[in-house]
């Protein structure tokens, strides 16, 4: 079976983001961009499925600016087979992304789409569920374990109360959580090999999808800054402060 992994280029998780002074968004000039960490986990899982003989081919897709090709290359260096880049300079929202992924699924016919549970920039946590809805496929979100089972998958999910296991019939959507696996680093030979792997280029128009946003961002501000407090010298002083100043105990 083919596995499709959508990968998103996001601000690196180590970068301290700055809100633009005009309030139009977050300053992305000259900041380090990386693959969304959850998507690295999704790519890793797809490659393991291939190594384990369950998957036949791993295709990665990224939608966005030209530099998304770097993100695709990273996935190819990890071991994915080929890439698809849908080029768009617009502000993309999950509904539009999900519609484009739906079109890619129609072209490629994967049996499984593995996505990150959320992208760490917009923190929407939507795309996988929306893609599942558009395709009429089952969804197993926040996966921490995946076990192939005869035309289906048993997926363990991280939920508020603990862990839940669901059975989903293939084709299916799985969104991955942090503890599914530890992604590998690409080796130098594999980085070299990845340069020769194909990346097909397309556009939202080619896919017949409008990328026009439904949500208008009216402004972006910094949250109120929390004032650092005081250091206390001892446990006694701490308890005294909590009792008499903060009055929380």
């Amino acid at each position: 079976m083919k596995v499709l992994v959508p990968v998103k280029r996001v601000i690196d998780y180590n970068v301290k983001v700055r809100v633009k002074t005009d309030g139009s968004g977050v300053d992305l000039t000259n900041v380090k961009m990386s693959m969304n960490p959850f998507d690295e986990i999704a790519v890793e899982e797809a490659i393991r499925l291939k190594e384990g003989g369950t998957a036949s081919e791993v295709i990665v897709a990224s939608i966005g600016v030209q530099q998304c090709q770097e993100t695709i290359r990273t996935a190819l260096a990890m071991g994915a087979d080929r890439g698809i880049h849908v080029k768009s300079d617009e502000e993309l929202q999950p509904l539009a992304v999900a519609k484009m992924l739906q079109a890619i699924v129609a072209q490629e016919g994967p049996s499984l789409v593995l996505l990150g549970k959320q992208a760490i920039d917009d923190d929407a946590n939507q795309t996988g569920q929306m893609l599942a809805a558009l395709l009429g496929w089952p969804q197993a979100t926040f996966a921490s374990k995946l076990a192939p089972a005869d035309g289906a998958l048993n997926v363990t999910r991280e939920v508020d109360g603990g862990l839940q296991t669901v059975w989903v019939k293939l084709p299916a959507i799985v969104t991955v959580d942090l503890r599914l696996n530890e992604p590998r680093y690409a080796s130098l030979p594999n980085i070299m090999k990845a340069k020769k792997k194909p990346i097909a280029a397309s556009t939202p128009e080619d896919l017949g999808v409008s990328a026009a946003p439904r949500l208008k961002t009216l402004g972006v501000v910094e949250p109120p800054k929390r004032q650092g407090g005081v250091k206390v010298a001892s446990v006694e002083e701490l308890v005294d402060k909590l009792k008499n100043d903060a009055r929380v105990i």
């Binding site: 509904l95 946590n125 929306m130 969804q139 991280e158």
Partner: peptide, 20 residues
């Protein structure tokens, strides 16, 4: 986790962009 699992699926079926 239930709300996050459900509402995007509802949104897509209604052709609505949810707000998380």
């Amino acid at each position: 986790t239930n709300g996050k699992n459900l509402l995007p699926r509802v949104g897509a079926l209604l052709d609505v962009q949810p707000i998380s």
